[in-house]
Nucleic acid binder design. Structure first.
Lengths: 377, 377
DNA sequence: AAGGGTATTGAATCTAATT
DNA sequence: CAATTAGATTCAATACCCT
């Protein structure tokens, strides 16, 4: 029998491929989400989006908010019982979620003030590292008819990685593009789910808390890549699945109620996937291929002997044949010398240093872009 | 000796009056807030506003893109050994807060994702009944300098009564007036504390986390009446005291650090009734909402994959998932690509680009108008 | 005086790949 | 795994200096 030697990353990759083939992609698992998640292999999911129910009746039945339902529990002892039961439930499904997430995966949970504080605490206690809490600011909320409180006009999402040092996916550049070239903030203004998007049967809502697709769209675009596997333990009518399909992500759902499952499957069937070109997003420079400054020198884009200046000509440096630069006593990389002359902890030499041309000073980053275009493919 | 018979309400009223006379109104109690609150009689306070340490758990130094350093919160008072330590601290001060609050009083606590979930859980466990969580959306937050997460652009306040059936004060009418005759929502847009309001000594800020008076103004106007007693267990530089004085409320503070106490007393001494200009900043701004093209994409008004044309169909471009558009080699915003294909210095993409519909070409600005109609309050 | 340009700053869990 | 190196990264408001 032939032996093939594999290094560690290759082994991991092959393992991931094998595991992926066993995943129930594009399926809604029937039953309790904890039991359903138990059937998923460990470290196999890229992102989890969870919209857990928030109210736990004493009978052990979970119910969703429908605006009129009020907790029947009244005295303090029962309240404690209720919170304790809810916390145990939260701890249970979070533990399974943690098991099936990849080390570089992340989790989103949405909730309101009834449950989000307990969920957030449980997430921290389970070892998740909160990256942001995000506010979904509803642009057209239900008014508070009685005038007894502030209009409850938002919901809270928590986004967390597997741990303090864990990696995670964040498509910073795509978010910035989506927000007209400003950093995306932690407060998102989006309309509630209504109109044609709202699933109805016989004139009534199929699901009391159907989330808008725009919300999932932003979540997925921000924190997953095409082809990633997204799991939703409280699938409901399948907003997560519909958006995943549209955005070229794989999905898995868990849902106990058959009428929700049916509505979800029908809905996702109708969803149209975007083609590959439309799925492309603005790439960050971090993802662009690295170019050594020395390559520009070798190829004559910035010849040896060129004098570099900072934007205000307060500093200058000379380029040497090996791509190092010299400024007074400082010798080294464009970054190191840039940092040294400024007395700064670090410096991006590509944008700090300029060459003197016909139209004034041009950052050497422009030469890098030219080089990248010329050497593409 | 004459005997005066008093009925029960009169007795309670007299008791309240006597207790009130023993309260350290207009004073800052020196020392740990738990010990300080122990000196306050039970059921004597109308409202508590608490801004406890956030337990930020910051890593190393952080520098801005220009190389300058970020002045972080490094004070000892924000350092806790573990979540367990922080939880014990929270439980301790909440218990005292609960003891001194009147049955019809209420409590506000402000925090960030670092601590607010733990605080909210502790409040529920202590028996407080959450009435709202309120989002302070900062109009000018500190950016995320490294592009690693969403800009942390908000903080969360929790407002709670003494229990599910407990009474509380809510001045619905005042809030509606303050909000241009619309119900006050659970998200408040306010600037951070800066400029003349920010207390400084020798050019540097006295307190690292001074809260804006506008925030306290809205809190107090909404949930207290003139003459009410407001206590702040983490008084700092006395924003609560200054606003209480201006609004005709009584105040009590607790503060360990003498330099904060001194700054606070001096500041409150100077506090004057609010003038017109200050009042204006307290009011909700009804400014025209800015719409990013990306919002139309994620909400399906202009789906990814759509082809855009200029009015005469000389140019076309394709919409991508993140709201960028592609025309040949040009990739970027509707404005940038519009300018590039025309060879123009600038371009209003909203009027330049059109979508092909039943009635011919329609400018994408029409979709923006539709979106605005759907999201208007 | 008005306006333009530049510097400063705010509750921040703030890099990633290679050696 | 720690140390090193390459190199990516900011928005709104205020303050102050200069025409």
């Amino acid at each position: 029998m032939a032996t093939v030697l594999l290094n560690k990353p290759e082994k991991a990759k092959m393992h991931a491929t094998n595991v992926r083939e066993t995943l129930p992609l594009g399926q809604i698992l029937d039953g309790d989400c904890i039991a359903a998640m138990r059937s998923i292999p460990a470290k196999s999911i890229d992102m989890i989006f969870a919209d857990p129910p928030y109210n736990l009746q004493l009978g052990g039945d979970l119910s969703r908010p429908d605006g009129s339902a009020v907790d029947a529990v009244t005295d303090d002892w029962d309240k404690f019982e209720s919170f304790a039961t809810y916390d145990a439930f939260t701890k249970g499904w979070l533990a399974e979620a943690r098991r099936i997430l990849k080390p570089g995966g992340s989790i989103w949970v949405i909730g309101s003030y009834h449950n989000i504080f307990r969920v957030g605490t449980a997430m921290q206690d389970a070892g998740f590292w909160i990256l942001n809490d995000v506010i979904w600011r509803k642009s057209n909320p239900m008014p508070n008819f009685k005038g007894t409180r502030f209009t409850n006009a938002h919901e809270t999402l928590i986004w967390a990685s597997m741990g303090e040092k864990a990696k995670y996916t964040f498509n910073y550049r795509a978010m910035k593009t989506l927000n007209d070239e400003l950093q995306m903030r932690s407060d998102w203004v989006l309309p509630i789910c209504s109109g044609a998007e709202r699933l109805k049967k016989g004139g009534t809502k199929v699901h009391p808390t159907q989330k808008p697709e725009a919300l999932l769209y932003r979540v997925m675009l921000a924190t997953t890549n095409p082809g990633d596997v997204v799991l939703d333990p409280f699938f409901g009518t399948g907003t997560t699945g519909a958006v995943a399909k549209r955005l070229g992500r794989e999905w898995i759902g868990c849902e106990r109620e058959s009428n929700y499952r049916e509505a979800a499957l029908e809905r996702i069937e109708m969803a149209l996937p975007l083609d590959e070109s439309a799925l492309k997003t603005m790439q960050s420079k971090r993802q662009a291929p690295r170019v050594a400054f020395g390559a520009l020198v070798e190829n004559g884009y910035v010849p040896a002997g060129t004098t570099l200046f900072d934007k205000k000509r307060r500093h200058s440096a000379e380029v040497r044949a090996d791509g190092s630069i010299v400024a007074g006593k400082e010798v080294g990389s464009i970054h190191g010398v840039g940092a040294a002359v400024q007395g700064a902890p670090s410096c991006n030499g590509w944008t700090f240093w300029h060459v003197d041309g016909e139209g004034g000073l041009t950052p050497i980053d422009a030469a890098r872009q030219l080089y990248l275009l010329a050497t593409e493919d």
